[in-house]
């Protein structure tokens, strides 16, 4: 039975601003899931707080919309307990790189088989225009009227430095490319980071659709995605490249830590006799 786009239709009214970059991401995710022939009940999207994390409500899909910045921790455990699910995380730049920064580092280390899609619009939208960790140095923002005094985080360089399994960047308005990248990210066995550049039509008058169209270019075709040093050089020198920067296939965390041959942890019964067996060592 093939999966159709309509299977993912949600009855929930969309609350994003008209013209929001999130719409492009929503369309690309749905297309990627349909093209991967994943049915809604086979997919779990974890998210936190902000505009981006509302995304799973606008798809008919298993949803765990938790706390701000903690979505990767939730997704890690959910994947371990229900490994039959395809697990994605949708977070904003604030949740993924600010509030959840520490979790991101350790999720990359674990290399659990989940895909983190960061809606990177370089601004806090839902709280009305504060700086995010990716806002440029010196750029004025609500709580930084004289300009952001810190240097921005470079998420791609950070992930590549940690040899994250799959590192890519997309642009919310180029859905064909994004769909392709998302499919590769989901297929990658391990932790995938897809940083999606997107305009914020309400709070950012500089980085508009036209701005991104003008500045973005594909990752050069000669780039070797297996070369971390080359990927790092690209990520630090050219902020608006789109495509796959780095890919490394390791043994995913789930394969390393899950008990073998017992089926998903989710489905296991309560077995007091296991405790009794273990307790023989105390006699």
């Amino acid at each position: 039975m093939s999966v159709r786009k309509e299977d993912y239709e949600s009855p929930v009214e969309n609350h994003w601003c008209p013209g929001c970059g999130n719409f492009g991401i929503l369309n690309a995710v749905r297309r990627a899931l349909v093209e991967l022939e994943l049915a809604p009940h086979q997919v779990l999207i974890c998210s936190g707080i902000g505009q981006a994390p509302k995304l799973p409500h606008y798809l008919r899909v298993n949803t765990m919309n938790g706390l701000h910045g903690r979505e990767v921790a939730v997704a890690t455990a959910a994947k371990l307990c229900a490994p039959d699910l395809c697990v994605l995380v949708h977070a904003g730049d604030g949740g993924a790189y600010g509030e959840g920064g520490n979790h991101l580092l350790h999720a990359i280390r674990r290399d659990v088989d989940i895909t983190l899609v960061v809606h990177d619009n370089k601004v806090y939208g839902l709280t009305k225009g504060q700086a995010s960790p990716t806002t440029s140095l010196g750029e004025p923002a609500k709580i930084h009227p004289r300009g952001v005094p810190s240097r921005p985080l470079n998420p791609l360089a950070l992930a590549i430095a940690l040899e994250c399994g799959f590192v890519a960047q997309a642009l919310s308005s180029r859905t064909d490319l994004m769909t392709d990248i998302l499919k590769r990210a989901v297929r990658h066995r391990g932790f995938s980071l897809v940083n999606v550049l997107q305009p914020c039509v309400s709070w950012d008058k500089v980085r508009t659709y036209a701005f991104y169209d003008q500045h973005c270019a594909p990752v050069p075709p000669e780039h070797d995605a297996g070369d971390a040093v080359a990927a790092f050089r690209l990520a630090t020198s050219r902020p608006f490249l789109l495509g796959v920067f780095f890919e490394r296939q390791g043994t995913p965390f789930d394969e390393r830590v899950l008990p073998q041959g017992s089926g998903p942890l989710r489905d296991l019964p309560v077995e007091p006799r296991r405790a009794e067996h273990i307790a023989r060592r105390f006699r």
């Binding site: 765990m64 938790g66 921790a73 455990a77 959910a78």
Partner: peptide, 15 residues
């Protein structure tokens, strides 16, 4: 913080 959120994720997933 990660620990309790992992607990939430595991529990949501049914374990």
């Amino acid at each position: 913080i990660a620990a309790i959120n992992m607990l939430a994720g595991a529990s949501y997933a049914g374990a």
